Computed example of a mutant assay.
Amino acid sequence: MKAILPVAGVGTRLRPLTHTQPKTLVHVAGKPILGHILDRLAPVGVDEVVLIVGQWGERIVEYVEKSYPRLKVTAVEQAERKGLGHAVYMAKDVFGAGEPALIVLGDTIFQADLQAALTRGKSAIGVRRVPNPSQFGVVELDGERVKRLLEKPADPPTDLAIVGIYYVRDSALLFRCLDEIIAEDIKVKGEYQLTDGLQRMIERGEELFTFPVEDWWDCGNPDILLETNRELLERERPAAPQLQGSIVVSPVAIDPTAVIERSVIGPYVSVAAGVTIRDSVIRDSILNEGAHVSTVLLDHSIVGEDADVRGEFSRLHIGDSSSMHLGGSGRRE
């Protein structure tokens, strides 16, 4: 089965991390965001991924081909970002008539029983109840079937949010509907929406059902990325390495190529390949590939690729009943 993964987004809310790398390759809980997604697709029979790429598309393709050699990779460039509906439409020439398609957003890590959803053999969309549905696309049901899809409505009729996982039984019908929407220039907030294409499929008689998503993380900004890192490390509990001369506090994910000396690492730390850490204390943080960190205490921090972070230690002789603040501007209350 083929899966469409739109990964052309630039990740503006994650800058400066995404100034020099695609959002989907940002490290979290031991691997890039995209790696977590692909780990969830292979067990349900996905053997080809269609990557809708933009800037740094070659890096994304290189990562998938190197890390998932059994997957066939097809890359389609989206030169101009015109919305999710347009991104999915770009894959039209890769699919044969009547071929099904699994669509998964390339920046959303999810936990769901995909196998059960696919076994049903009907078009289906992943949903989860949320307290703030106006911030999401939502579905309105008629019994078990989807009656209507709405993109971030001001007055949402339900609290069933669209998570970003779609199974379409007849991809040719979806591509025809998206083609019509683009030809008629039907946009919402300046973009062609996938929900409009799915809605038109429903109007043509396609049955669309839902399946529950247990959890999902959109990794949209640094705070959410760190929260995702904590939750995934807590859930997956990777084996913690024994590091001579350093202390590791689980849960952590440390790439075997990382060099760590005289440091305390964890909890909730993700260390990517090629990272060097010396004489530091690091907790609740993510260190991307090739980063160098020395003589610092990092907490709730993200260090980008090949970044160099250095601090310094101080030697003090401080008298009784004294107060001193080191590292930044202190103030007395």
Score class of each variant (00 low, 15 high):
42 A>N: 04
255 D>R: 01
37 I>P: 03
15 R>D: 03
76 V>S: 10
227 E>L: 13
238 P>L: 11
272 A>N: 08
111 Q>I: 13
286 I>W: 00
277 I>N: 09
238 P>T: 12
11 G>V: 09
95 F>E: 02
25 L>N: 05
36 H>Q: 10
98 G>V: 09
164 G>K: 07
268 Y>I: 02
71 L>T: 06
210 T>D: 05
112 A>Y: 07
221 N>M: 08
71 L>P: 05
282 I>G: 03
259 V>G: 00
152 K>T: 09
164 G>N: 06
52 I>E: 07
328 G>V: 03
29 A>V: 01
264 V>Y: 00
100 P>T: 02
198 L>A: 04
39 D>N: 15
58 E>S: 12
199 Q>E: 12
268 Y>C: 06
234 E>W: 06
28 V>T: 15
253 A>F: 05
163 V>E: 01
15 R>F: 02
56 W>R: 13
265 I>C: 04
123 S>Q: 03
61 V>P: 07
92 K>Y: 07
262 R>D: 15
233 L>W: 08
279 D>E: 15
79 A>T: 00
14 L>D: 06
44 V>P: 06
303 V>C: 08
205 G>P: 08
317 H>E: 10
240 A>W: 01
60 I>Y: 00
127 V>C: 10
112 A>I: 05
132 N>F: 04
328 G>C: 05
276 T>R: 15
63 Y>G: 05
249 V>E: 13
97 A>L: 14
47 D>H: 11
253 A>I: 03
127 V>S: 09
329 S>F: 13
159 D>F: 09
117 A>M: 01
83 G>Q: 13
86 H>V: 00
64 V>T: 04
328 G>W: 07
285 S>N: 02
273 A>K: 14
81 R>T: 04
260 I>Q: 08
32 P>R: 01
30 G>N: 11
265 I>L: 12
310 R>Y: 09
155 D>C: 00
87 A>E: 15
67 S>D: 08
50 V>C: 13
111 Q>A: 14
88 V>A: 08
216 W>T: 03
167 Y>A: 04
156 P>H: 12
259 V>M: 09
301 S>K: 04
306 D>G: 08
113 D>V: 02
207 E>D: 12
215 D>L: 02
134 S>D: 07
329 S>L: 14
184 E>H: 09
195 T>W: 13
28 V>F: 07
310 R>K: 15
131 P>F: 02
152 K>F: 00
269 V>R: 13
157 P>L: 12
4 I>C: 03
171 S>D: 13
162 I>R: 08
191 E>I: 04
104 V>T: 06
245 G>L: 10
228 T>Y: 11
177 C>N: 13
304 G>R: 06
6 P>V: 09
196 D>A: 10
139 V>W: 04
